[in-house]
Every structure is written in structure tokens, then in C-alpha cells.
């Protein structure tokens, strides 16, 4: 699903990623670990071009999205992202947070489809054009509510994020990503900013997603999660992938010297 080929990224004169190659298949759960400053977050942020790669290719569903000519916004709809600091929209209620992007993008598509219909180029989009804005809103609202029910926060639908706990915010952020029906979700240290008490509820939701077959790329310091849930663990250090293996092999029989040292400190 995602093919990363010789990805490099520099900030000014500092080369953070020095050529990364990795393939992420449908259903993979890739845990990325590494010391701070190793480039693991930068790598994740390059995957959806939050940081534009300096060179290299990222082939997502057959399109090289590292190419600056590609309309990245369309591809990002299929790539959810969950941030360390949640980044819920502070000026929107919880349910608006979840609905905003799906409603907006579907209404944009609707406009386009209507325009096409007007010029007699309907085709496959014709059925899309029969919907109205209100119908889209209603559908997405129902969907958002069922997502909130799933995480047991339906009573929080109309409050603003400032009233929520960190764990609640992060679970809503995950659900916000889910609302777009993405092919893959990128997690950037999703539990690092949480109280220890709340880490569990977020990991639990991530485990549920994993068991449902969602493709996930997770930058994490939670070795337990990596061991238990990941299908592959990747160790990034000094801007390159030093080791990549199944979790059992990775934790019990590490080969790279730097990884051995790292694991001896964190385990």
C-alpha cells in the first residue's frame, strides 16, 4: 500500500533522514521505535507529506505523493493522522471535530459532480450529484455519533475539547481520523502526552482497530504495545532503519549493536 523508496529529508544543512526504504502492506501494524532525535517522527510526518521530503519517493496506492505536483489533499483523506498533542479543533465541538472534514470534502465532491452533470459529463458521478448537502450532513452526523458511541463518549458530542481529559481527547482524535474511512492511520507518539492512567484507554482503542485489520504506522515508546500488537517493529537511528523484524525476533534476538543498547535501557 505504501512503498517508501530512498526517502531523504534535510532541515537546512541537517540531514535528518538519510535514505529510508520500507514497504507497508494492507493490514500491517508497523511500530517505529528509536531514540529521540533519530528521525522517527520526521519519517512519519513525511509519509503524509506534513514535511515535504527532500528527495525520494512515497508511493501510496500507486501514486508518488512526494511529487510536489500531486494534489496532496486528496491523498491525505485516505491517510489519517493522530498527533501527540491531540490537536482537536478548539473552536469546534466534539461532534463538529469529527464531522468537519468528511462533510466538507463530500460537499466539495458534490459541487464538482453537479458541475460535471451540468456540462453533461455525468457518468459515474451522476449518483453522487443526487444527494443534497443536508443529506450529507445528516449521514455524517449519524456516523459521527455511532463512532462516539463506540468509544463511549456520546454524551460529550456537544462540548468543546477544552472540557475533556487527555485520554478522551486522544480517543476522539483517533475517531476523527476514522471518520474519513482512511486506508491507513499514522500515529505520532499517541500516548506520550497522556497521564499514565489514560494511556491504557487509548492503547485499548488502538488494539481494537488493529484487530479489525486497520493498517497502522505507530511511532511509540510503548514497548509493550509494540511487542503485543505490532506485526513488524522498525528501529530508526541516525536517520536510517537499523533493524526491521517481527516483534518476537526484534525483542528477543536483536542484531544491531545500537538496538541492543537501546533495548537494554528501555526494557
Amino acid at each position: 500500500m505504501i512503498d517508501v523508496i530512498n526517502l531523504k529529508k534535510s532541515f537546512g544543512d541537517v540531514e535528518v533522514l538519510k535514505g529510508i526504504d520500507i514497504t507497508i502492506n494492507k493490514g500491517d501494524i508497523v511500530a517505529i521505535i528509536g531514540p529521540s532525535g533519530s528521525g522517527k517522527s520526521t519519517f512519519l510526518r513525511c509519509l503524509n507529506c506534513m514535511e515535504d521530503p527532500t528527495s525520494g519517493q512515497i508511493i501510496f496506492n500507486g501514486v508518488d505523493i512526494a511529487d510536489m505536483k500531486v494534489d496532496i489533499n486528496i491523498h491525505r483523506r485516505n491517510m489519517g493522522m493522530v498527533f501527540q498533542h491531540f490537536n482537536l479543533f478548539n473552536n469546534k465541538t466534539v461532534i463538529e471535530n469529527i464531522m468537519l472534514a468528511p462533510v466538507y470534502t463530500r460537499c466539495q465532491d458534490l459541487k464538482k459532480a453537479k458541475r460535471k452533470k451540468l456540462f453533461g459529463k455525468g457518468g459515474a458521478d451522476a449518483s453522487l450529484a443526487s444527494l443534497t448537502k443536508e443529506q450529507i450532513k445528516k449521514e455524517e452526523k449519524e456516523k459521527a455519533m455511532s463512532l462516539l458511541k463506540r468509544i463511549g463518549l456520546e454524551d460529550k458530542a456537544d462540548v468543546y475539547p477544552s472540557t475533556l481529559s487527555g485520554g478522551q481527547k486522544q480517543r476522539i482524535a483517533i475517531v476523527r481520523a476514522l471518520a474519513m474511512d482512511p486506508d491507513v492511520i499514522l500515529f505520532d507518539e499517541p500516548t506520550s502526552a497522556l497521564d499514565p492512567e489514560m494511556v491504557g484507554e487509548v492503547l485499548e482503542l488502538m488494539k481494537q482497530l488493529a484487530s479489525e485489520g486497520m493498517t497502522m504506522v505507530v511511532v511509540t515508546h510503548e514497548m509493550g504495545f509494540a511487542k503485543e500488537v505490532a506485526s513488524r517493529v522498525v528501529f530508526i537511528d541516525e536517520g536510517v532503519i537499523k533493524e526491521e523484524a517481527a516483534p518476537k525476533e526484534f525483542f528477543e534476538n536483536p542484531k544491531d549493536a545500537r538496538l541492543k543498547e537501546f533495548l537494554s535501557k528501555v526494557l
Binding site: 489533499n73 498527533f83 479543533f89 466538507y104 470534502t105 481520523a177 474519513m180
Partner: peptide, 12 residues
């Protein structure tokens, strides 16, 4: 992060 979150869900 607010802008990043907006861009991440595919808004321009």
C-alpha cells in the same frame, strides 16, 4: 498543531 490537524484530514 491546529493547522497541521486540518491539513492532516485533507483540508487545503
Amino acid at each position: 498543531g491546529q493547522m497541521e490537524a486540518g491539513r492532516a484530514v485533507g483540508l487545503s
